[in-house]
């Protein structure tokens, strides 16, 4: 079966290429996970590559034996079948070796997992609430809170038969009106929840994804090491427009963050002083109303 061989080898080498060929994130024909811009995302990337290469190594070994058998022990080549039907040594070996390999994988995996789940020592806490179909960002210690929805250009282009060439829309489906803004090199703790159905908050470059569950709070953390704009999407089916609630995070220098925050606060103050207090309260009420509606 030369074709089969080629295909199997092709599959392996294509994936192998993925590792060697590090293309910019937004380019087409991307093959591999992104390295990302946080310690966690680097750890995850390395773990991913480690396991990937172990699997490749096992695949090469196992598939070689298979291909060799297929190529060699053919009746058409006059092969006569042997009569053995077990071999205890071999069976013990190929039970124990995988166990050892798995242990070798489990140790770094467990270490990374512990790190991921450790949200202690965070410097900034943001509450993220998923709605059908938008995100709400709540800077809990600052009293700043706003919604983030799909950018207008994308929204028009994505209507059925809109006639818009989506290639001309910048960051098609990955752009929002009000991105989340965080300072660089700061451990940010994100509290994730939802108001109606499940959502999941995900920024691939931060290596983190957590489900947003109505009535419950989940935690994640990230510490972006590079200034920039990072884009992700809702990653839990949340109904009709699940595909249209992107997550955009702008990571900025501390100074820029401070002035941005001040601007937000000023804007809120301007928008009538007494209303500011109730704004936070209403959002909470909104949440609970929806929850009740769901419970009924």
């Amino acid at each position: 079966m030369p074709m089969k061989m080629k295909r199997a080898l092709g599959a392996i080498s294509a994936t192998a290429l993925a590792a060697l060929w590090s293309v910019p994130a937004a380019a087409a024909w991307t093959l591999n996970l992104r390295q990302g811009v946080t310690e966690l995302s680097h750890d995850i990337y390395n773990l991913h590559m480690l396991i990937f290469w172990i699997c490749v190594a096992i695949a090469v070994t196992v598939f070689s034996v298979m291909i060799y058998s297929i190529a060699t022990f053919r009746k058409s080549k006059g092969a006569v079948s042997a009569s053995f039907s077990h071999n205890t040594t071999a069976e013990v070996v190929w039970t124990l070796i995988p166990v050892m390999i798995l242990v070798a994988m489990a140790i770094p995996a467990a270490r990374t997992l512990v790190k991921i789940e450790d949200t202690s020592g965070s410097e900034l806490t943001i509450k993220v609430t998923g709605y059908q179909w938008k995100w709400q960002y709540d800077y809990v210690d600052e009293g700043v809170s706003y919604f983030s929805t799909l950018a207008q250009a994308s929204n028009e282009a994505r209507q059925l038969d809109s006639g818009v060439d989506v290639y001309r829309v910048e960051n098609y489906l990955l752009d929002v009106d009000n991105p989340l803004v965080v300072p660089v090199n700061t451990k940010v703790r994100v509290l994730v929840t939802a108001a109606d159905v499940l959502h999941a908050w995900w920024v691939p470059d931060f290596g983190m994804k957590k489900d947003a569950i109505p009535g419950y709070i989940n935690e994640l953390w990230f510490k972006a090491e590079k200034v920039g704009t990072y884009r992700g999407q809702c990653a839990e089916l949340c109904g009709r427009d699940h595909g249209f609630m992107p997550v955009v995070v702008r990571v900025v220098e501390q100074a820029e963050y401070d002035s941005w925050l001040a601007g937000q606060k000023a804007a809120r103050q301007a928008a009538a002083a007494p209303a500011a207090q109730t704004a936070a309260a209403t959002t909470n009420n909104e949440t609970t109303t929806v929850l009740v509606a769901n419970a009924e």
């Binding site: 196992v62 034996v65 298979m66 058998s69 297929i70 022990f73 053919r74 009746k75 092969a79 006569v80 079948s81 042997a82 053995f84 071999n87 071999a90 069976e91 190929w94 039970t95 995988p98």
Partner: peptide, 16 residues
Amino acid sequence: GVKVFNWTATMWRGSL
């Protein structure tokens, strides 16, 4: 894995 290896070993020195 045991299964995959056993299938492979079945083909080994067979007459395919």
